[in-house]
Write a protein that binds this DNA or RNA. Structure first.
Length: 836
DNA sequence: AGCACGCCGACT
DNA sequence: GTCGGCGTGCTC
C-alpha cells in the first residue's frame, strides 16, 4: 500500500505475548495528525477488540494490505519520550520480555487502563431480523432492549445465547477503555494566605490588643515573610490554629482564598532549608571529580567508593547543584528501605520545590502527580526507588545510584531489569554522568572500577574522623564446646551488660533467611512442610500458627506429629521472636523493640518503631536485614550479629559477597557519634574469608579474593548468565521437559556456552508446581549473546503444553560494549588478578 | 491474551 | 436439525 499523503503510525499493542510483540501499522485520521507523537498512548482496533497501544514511530507506507485507523489519542502530553520508547525496545531485547511490558513499566499505573465490554442492542435493528430469532432468543433480546445493555460478566454466564444474538446481528459488543480517572484527579483545594502591604500590617500590629498574642505573631510573620503561603504550612510553622488567621482575615488585615493545587504527600510538612555543608578535602576532591564530566557533558561512570559515614550524601547534594546550575536534571536512586523521611528531608531541604519523590508508599494518584511534575519539567530532581530510573526527564545531566550493590535495584517480575543497567543506558543517551555510590560495591562494579571501565573515586575517611568500631568474631562452635548452649556467646552477653550499664543502646541483628522458625518432630525427625510448596512452614508465636512464607498457606500449630503421631513436637530455629524471648529471659527487665515481618507489616509501623528506639524507649533494637541499612542512632554503641553465616551457605554465587556487604553495613551502625562502638559477630565459620576480611575492614583484599574465585569458577563479571526457570504440575513430566530443553540448547546454542542443570532451585515446589532451573554461562560477546537469545526465543514455541511455564532472565547484564570486555579478558590484562 | 470460527458429538 | 464443547489461528 503506497500513498503519498498517507501517514501511518507504528503501534505496540497492549497484548503482552511474544507473537504480538511487534509494531502494528495504523492509519492516522486527519483530526489526530497534530495530536499524535512518538510515545503517545492510543486506542486502536485490534482483531475483534479495542486495545490500548503506544505509538513508537511513523511511516508513509505500509506493507499491510488492510490498514485500520487509530480510534483516539489518549493524552495531551505523550506519557513516553522518544528516548524512553527507544529504551523500551532495548529492554524487550535484553530481558526477553514483550515490548509493551517494558513500556508499561516506565509509566505510572494510572496509564494502564482497563477494558470494559458491554452488549448493546444493535443500532440498526429491523423487525424482520427479529422474527428470525427463536423464542428463547426473543426473550433475551427483550430483556436486553429493556435494560439497554448488559455487561460482559453477565454475557459470560450465557455465552452461547450471547453469541447467537451477536451472530444474528441483533446485538453488538462495545468495548470501553476505562481510564483510572479517579487517581488522576490531581487537584485539591488549599487555602492560601497573604498580606503584602507591610505598612498596613504594622498598623494592624499596633491596633491589636496586647492580649492577642497569637494574632500578633501571625502579623509579625507576614512582616518578615511577605510571600503568600498555604494555610496548613503557616499553621504548622507558627503552631497556631485556623481561627487566629480567620480573625485577621475578617478584620481585613490578611487575605485568603481557596486554590486548586497538586496533591502533595509532603504537605503540612515544612522542610528546613539546608545549606551546603563544608566539605573535607577528600569530599572536595570527589565533588571535583564528579563535576568534571558533568561540566564537559560527557558520558562517564564513576564508582564512588566511600566508607560508611564518609559523607557521600553531601557530595551528591553538591554535585546535583552543579547539574542544576547547568540547567540539566538529576535522578537519584535510593533503596526503598533508605527512602526514609530523613533522606527526603535532606533533599527537599536543599532543593525544595525542585524535587519529586517517588516511593512505594505513594498512592497511585500521588505517584502520578509526582511523575507529572517530572514530565512537565516542573522539577529538576527526582529521588526514588528502582522505578524512578524511568523518570521522564529530557536533559539528564546526572544519575546517582546510592548503595548501588543493593539487591532491590533488580526487579523480580517482568521485565526483570536491573536499575544499574537502565541507568547506564540512559546516561549514555543523555551524555550524562552516572555515579554509583557504595561502601561495599557489587563485585562487578568494583571490577569495572579497577579495570578502568568506571572512574574510581574513594572516600576513605569518616567525616568527623571517628574511628571504626572494634570488631570481635566469636566462634560459636567453641562456645558450644565450653558448654554455652544459649544463642548468645559469652562475649556478646558481656558486652550487652556493659552497654546497658552505661545507659547506651544496642542493635542485634538476625538474618531471617534460612533462619525462620520451623516445626520438627523430635521422635521421627520430620518437619512440617507446606502441602503446596516443598518448604518448611514457619512458626508464628503471635497466633499459634504455622505459615508458608511463599504461598501464604496457614494452619494451626499441630499438637501431634502428622507422620508418627508423636506428641514430642516443637519449634526450632532462631526467629526474631525466639531471640526476643531469650533476651528477656537472660536479661530480666530489658526493653526490646523487635522489627520483623510481623511487627512492621502495618503501614508506618516501620518508622514508628525506629523513632521509638531513637527516643530511647528501648535498650535493644532487634531485627532483620531492614535494620542494617543507613540508619543512624547516636546512642548505639554495640552491634551484635547473632549468626553471621546463615546466608553464607545459600546456593548462590553471590553468597560470600552478600555476607561481606552485610557485615560491613552492620558494623557501620555502631559508634557513629561520640561513643566508641563495638561489634560482636557470632559465627560457626570464623575462618571464612568474607567474615574474616569484613571483621578486619580489609575491603581491598576481599574484593581481590572474590574476583579470583569468580574468575576461577567463571561467574560474573567474567561471564554472563541466563537463568531458565521451568515449572510444571507433575514432577516426572517436568524432568522430561527439562532434559529436552537442555538438549535443545546444547544443539542450538553457541558451543562455548556452559550449561548447568537442570537442577531443582532453592524452592523446588511452589504453589503446587514443581520447578527446575537451568543456568547458562556465556561469553560477553555480542555474536554469542545474539545467537543465544535467538535459541531461547525458539525455545518458547518448542513445546505445546500450556501447563509448562518457562521464564527466563538475565543475571547481571551490563550494557557496556560486550566486545570491549571480551578483548580485555582475552588479553589477560587483569591488573587485579596479577597483583594477588 | 482474547476472541471468533469451525468441526464434531449429543440432544430435542 | 440445533446446541454447546473445544481446538486452531489471527490480530495492522
Amino acid at each position: 500500500m503506497v500513498n503519498k499523503e498517507m501517514r501511518v503510525a507504528e503501534v505496540i499493542v497492549d497484548v503482552p505475548t511474544h507473537d504480538t510483540d511487534r509494531p502494528f501499522d495504523y492509519l492516522i485520521p486527519a483530526e489526530l495528525q497534530e495530536e499524535i507523537h512518538i510515545g503517545s498512548r492510543v486506542q486502536v482496533p485490534f482483531g475483534h477488540r479495542k486495545v490500548i497501544g503506544y505509538c513508537i514511530g511513523f511511516k508513509t507506507t505500509s506493507s499491510s494490505i488492510r490498514l485500520k485507523s487509530i480510534y483516539d489519542v489518549m493524552d495531551l502530553v505523550p506519557p513516553l519520550t522518544p528516548e524512553l520508547v527507544e529504551l523500551g525496545k532495548v529492554m524487550a531485547d535484553e530481558y526477553l520480555c514483550p515490548t509493551i511490558t517494558a513500556l508499561q513499566s516506565m509509566v505510572p499505573a494510572v496509564f494502564k487502563g482497563s477494558y470494559q465490554k458491554v452488549i448493546h442492542p444493535s443500532s440498526e435493528m429491523s423487525e424482520n431480523i427479529f422474527s428470525l430469532l427463536n423464542p428463547a432468543e426473543q426473550q433475551l433480546f427483550k430483556i436486553l432492549a429493556a435494560r439497554g445493555e448488559y455487561t460482559w460478566e453477565e454475557a459470560c454466564k450465557i455465552p452461547n445465547m450471547t453469541r447467537r444474538l451477536l451472530r444474528k446481528l441483533v446485538a453488538e459488543k462495545r468495548i470501553f477503555v476505562t481510564e483510572r480517572i479517579e487517581d488522576r484527579i490531581t487537584k485539591q483545594k488549599v487555602t492560601w494566605v497573604w498580606g503584602k502591604d507591610i505598612h498596613k500590617l504594622k498598623a494592624a500590629l499596633s491596633s491589636l490588643s496586647a492580649r492577642a498574642i497569637r494574632q500578633k505573631e501571625v502579623l509579625q510573620y507576614f512582616i518578615d515573610h511577605p510571600d503568600e503561603i498555604e494555610l496548613p504550612k503557616l499553621l504548622a510553622r507558627l503552631q497556631t490554629t485556623r481561627s487566629t488567621v480567620k480573625k485577621l482575615v475578617e478584620q481585613g488585615w490578611l487575605y485568603w482564598e481557596e486554590r486548586e493545587q497538586y496533591r502533595d504527600p509532603y504537605k503540612n510538612r515544612q522542610f528546613e532549608q539546608t545549606t551546603p555543608l563544608p566539605l573535607t578535602p577528600e569530599q572536595q576532591q570527589a565533588l571535583a571529580g564528579i563535576s568534571k564530566p558533568i561540566i564537559e557533558e560527557k558520558f562517564h561512570t564513576i564508582l564512588l567508593h566511600g566508607v560508611t559515614g564518609s559523607g557521600k550524601t553531601e557530595v551528591y547534594l553538591q554535585t546535583i547543584e552543579e547539574v542544576l546550575r547547568q540547567g540539566r536534571e538529576a535522578i537519584v536512586l535510593v533503596p526503598e528501605i533508605s527512602l526514609t523521611p530523613q533522606m527526603v528531608q535532606r533533599f527537599k531541604g536543599r532543593f525544595g520545590e525542585r524535587v519529586a519523590v517517588l516511593h512505594s508508599r505513594l498512592s497511585n494518584g500521588e505517584r502520578y502527580d509526582e511523575w507529572r511534575k517530572i514530565r512537565r519539567g516542573e522539577v529538576q530532581v527526582a529521588i526514588g526507588a528502582r522505578s524512578a530510573i524511568f523518570a521522564p526527564f529530557q536533559h539528564i545531566g546526572l544519575i546517582i545510584i546510592d548503595e548501588e550493590h543493593e539487591t532491590s535495584y533488580k526487579q523480580e517480575e517482568n521485565p526483570k531489569y536491573h536499575a544499574r543497567d537502565i541507568a547506564l543506558w540512559r546516561a549514555q543517551a543523555h551524555h550524562a554522568t552516572l555515579v554509583l555510590g557504595s561502601a561495599t560495591p557489587a563485585v562487578e562494579s568494583y571490577y569495572h572500577a579497577r579495570t578502568g571501565e568506571y572512574e574510581w573515586i574513594q572516600l576513605k575517611e569518616r567525616v568527623h574522623g571517628r574511628p571504626f568500631p572494634q570488631v570481635q568474631v566469636v566462634d560459636m562452635r567453641e562456645e558450644l564446646r565450653l558448654g554455652n548452649r544459649s544463642m548468645f556467646s559469652g562475649a556478646l552477653t558481656g558486652s550487652l551488660i556493659e552497654c546497658m550499664k552505661r545507659g547506651e543502646q544496642a542493635v542485634l541483628f538476625l538474618n531471617r533467611r534460612g533462619f525462620a522458625t520451623f516445626v520438627m518432630c523430635r521422635e521421627c525427625g520430620e518437619t512440617i512442610t507446606c502441602p503446596h510448596c516443598d518448604i518448611s512452614l514457619t512458626y508464628h508465636q503471635t497466633n499459634q500458627t504455622v505459615r508458608c512464607h511463599y504461598c501464604g498457606y496457614a494452619e494451626g500449630l499441630p499438637q501431634i506429629c502428622p507422620h508418627c503421631q508423636s506428641k514430642h513436637i516443637r519449634h526450632f530455629g532462631t526467629g526474631t521472636q525466639r531471640v526476643e524471648a531469650e533476651l528477656k529471659r537472660q536479661f530480666p527487665g530489658i526493653q526490646v523493640i523487635r522489627m520483623d515481618v510481623d511487627t512492621t507489616s502495618r503501614k508506618g509501623a516501620h518508622e514508628k518503631l525506629l523513632s521509638q528506639f531513637r527516643e530511647g524507649k528501648a535498650q535493644v533494637l532487634l531485627g532483620t536485614q531492614m535494620i542494617a541499612k543507613g540508619l543512624d542512632f547516636p546512642k548505639v554503641t554495640l552491634v551484635g550479629v547473632i549468626a553471621a553465616d546463615t546466608m553464607l551457605h545459600l546456593p548462590d554465587f553471590r553468597a560470600a559477597e552478600r555476607t561481606f556487604q552485610l557485615l560491613m553495613q552492620v558494623g557501620g551502625r555502631a559508634g557513629r557519634h561520640e561513643q566508641p562502638g563495638k561489634v560482636v559477630i557470632q559465627t560457626y565459620s570464623p575462618e571464612h574469608y568474607s567474615i574474616r576480611l569484613a571483621a578486619s575492614y580489609q575491603t581491598e583484599t576481599f574484593y581481590h579474593q572474590e574476583c579470583l574465585i569468580r574468575k576461577r569458577h567463571s561467574y560474573p563479571p567474567f561471564c554472563r548468565l541466563f537463568t531458565i526457570l521451568l515449572s510444571y504440575p507433575d514432577r516426572l513430566g517436568l524432568m522430561k521437559y527439562g532434559q529436552e530443553i537442555v538438549q535443545f540448547i546444547r544443539n542450538h546454542a553457541p558451543t562455548n556456552c556452559q550449561l548447568l542443570g537442570p537442577v531443582p532451585p532453592t524452592i523446588p515446589r511452589l504453589k503446587d508446581r514443581y520447578r527446575l532451573q537451568v543456568l547458562i554461562k556465556f561469553q560477553a560477546d555480542p555474536i554469542v549473546t545474539a545467537r543465544l537469545k535467538q535459541t531461547l526465543h525458539k525455545l518458547r514455541n518448542l513445546f505445546d503444553d500450556k501447563e509448562l511455564r518457562i521464564s527466563m532472565s538475565r543475571e547481571m547484564v551490563d550494557l557496556i560494549s560486550d566486545r570491549k570486555v571480551l578483548m580485555r579478558e582475552q588479553s589477560e590484562e587483569i591488573e587485579i588478578l596479577s597483583k594477588h
